[in-house]
Simulated scan of single mutants.
Amino acid sequence: MTQVPNTIQLEASTEAAHFGLRLDQTLADLFPEYSRSKLKTWIQDGNVSVNGEVITVPRHKMQIDEVITVHAEMEVQVNSVAQDIALDIVFEDEHILVINKPADLVVHPGAGNPSGTVLNALLNHVPDIDRVPRAGIVHRLDKDTTGLMVVAKTVPAQTHLVDQLQRREMSREYEAIAMGTMVAGGVVDEPIGRHATKRTHMAVREDGKPAITHFRVIEKFRAYTHLRLKLETGRTHQIRVHMAHLKHPLLGDQTYGGRPRLPKGASNAFIDTLRGFQRQALHAAQLSLFHPESEEWMTWKAPLPRDMQDLLEAVRQDTKENPEDMI
């Protein structure tokens, strides 16, 4: 384990949703990558200012359009070990790393996954990344979601990228296969929070955090739809929860969609394909952001992985064999 002090500098403005909230609650919403206890300690230690005035009371009530600034020292602890795990690197320089994550790879160690993660691979590939909080991980993909994610190799780069996420400047686009036939695209603007009884699940709920997902139809089939989706916010399981809310859960998503719905008249080969696809059909296909050093707008693309390509071809073939069921 290593312990390295790092200077944390954060800034954000409050929105309508923060009106009347406590300062510690507002910080937790604006800077979710830091623990609530750490944020509270920073407030009490005089490391947080509101409109230029240092506030040391966590229960201080917030107004709209206030500028919150955090300037603090943080001891970064990395308990994980470096592991020689191959990374599909799409781009790398001295500031950032963009990878194409495969399925069945957890991003960050946790309960049930103490090692064998993206973080362990990063510690091996960039040994001094242990000086950056969370080993530079800025945003996550679910274990079984494939595609692009960016990692910061320095603290300033991480601060810059996190700020882009909070300002909704970073663009993340996905491809997915949803159950049911959708005839048009649209927007889901529904808040997401922790499920009331299933603590590992998320759900649409009135007291949740704002969540907005844009989607359009790429191709429709007799029982499924190939979608392109763009996140305006980045809540946990956002696409999966929003699509389930529309009654079009992602194919293979047993958490939010249950077992695959078999269309009538499906061939045995197609049924075997559906049952053999053991993850949600979701892929982070495109990532765009401002480079933290040069400020250049950069875009990367990752093609659909083979398993989703094969699944799409099977769905397409099923529709050809049952054209009378097309809407």
Score class of each variant (00 low, 15 high):
Val90Leu: 02
Gln317Ile: 13
Arg228Pro: 08
Val183Gly: 02
Ile43Arg: 02
Thr145Trp: 06
Asp88Ile: 07
Ile99Asp: 13
Leu161Arg: 00
Thr145Phe: 11
Phe221Ser: 09
Glu324Gln: 14
Thr213Leu: 06
Glu53Gln: 15
Gln278Met: 12
Thr319Val: 09
Thr225Ile: 04
Gly252Phe: 05
Asn51Gln: 11
Val217Ile: 12
Glu295Gly: 07
Val241Trp: 03
Val98Asp: 15
Val106Asp: 05
Val162Cys: 04
Val126Asp: 09
Met149Phe: 07
Met74Gly: 00
Ala72Lys: 05
Ala72Asn: 08
His226Cys: 01
Met308Phe: 01
His125Gln: 11
Pro292Thr: 07
Asp307Lys: 03
Leu289Glu: 03
Pro5Asn: 08
Glu75Gln: 12
Val70Phe: 05
Gly52Gln: 13
Asp45Ser: 11
Phe215Met: 01
Lys209Thr: 12
Thr213Asn: 10
Gln83Glu: 15
Ala184Trp: 00
Pro114Asn: 09
Ala269Ile: 03
Phe91Lys: 08
Met326Asp: 09
Asn6Leu: 11
Asp84Asn: 14
Asp84Leu: 01
Ile99Trp: 10
Arg168Cys: 02
Asn79Lys: 08
Thr2Phe: 12
Gln166Trp: 08
Asp144Pro: 11
Leu119Cys: 11
Ile327Arg: 10
Thr56Pro: 07
Met170Ser: 08
Gln9Met: 09
Glu206Ala: 14
Thr225Trp: 03
Arg194Pro: 12
Asp88Lys: 02
Gly116Thr: 08
Glu33Cys: 04
Ala184Ile: 02
Leu27His: 08
Leu165Asn: 08
Glu175Ile: 07
Glu169Pro: 01
Thr225Arg: 03
Ala121Phe: 04
Leu23Phe: 03
Pro127Trp: 01
Asp65Phe: 07
Gln3Ser: 13
Met298Trp: 06
Thr14Tyr: 02
Lys38Ile: 07
Ala28Val: 10
Met202Thr: 02
Pro133Ser: 06
Arg259Leu: 12
Gln63Cys: 00
Gly252Ser: 13
Glu190His: 02
Pro191Cys: 04
Gly110Thr: 14
Leu105His: 12
Asn79Ser: 07
Asp310Gln: 12
Val106Cys: 06
Arg275Asn: 15
Val81Gly: 15
Leu30Cys: 02
His248Asp: 09
Val138His: 04
Ser288Met: 06
Glu53Ser: 11
Gly20Asn: 09
Ser13Trp: 02
Asp318Lys: 08
Ser115Lys: 15
Arg199Met: 09
Glu73Arg: 06
His237Pro: 01
Thr233Gly: 07
His18Trp: 04
Ala86Gly: 01
Leu23Thr: 08
Glu232Gln: 13
Asp45Ala: 10
Lys320Phe: 05
Ser267Asp: 12
His291Ser: 06
Ala152Asn: 05
Glu53Arg: 14
Asn322Thr: 13
Glu173Arg: 09
Val150Gly: 05
Val150Glu: 11
Tyr224Ser: 14
Asp318Leu: 01
Ala103Arg: 10
Glu11Ile: 00
Pro249Tyr: 03
Asn6Gln: 13
Phe277Cys: 10
Gly265Arg: 01
Arg199Pro: 12
Gly116Asn: 12
Gln280Gly: 13
Glu175Trp: 05
Arg36Ala: 03
Met308Tyr: 04
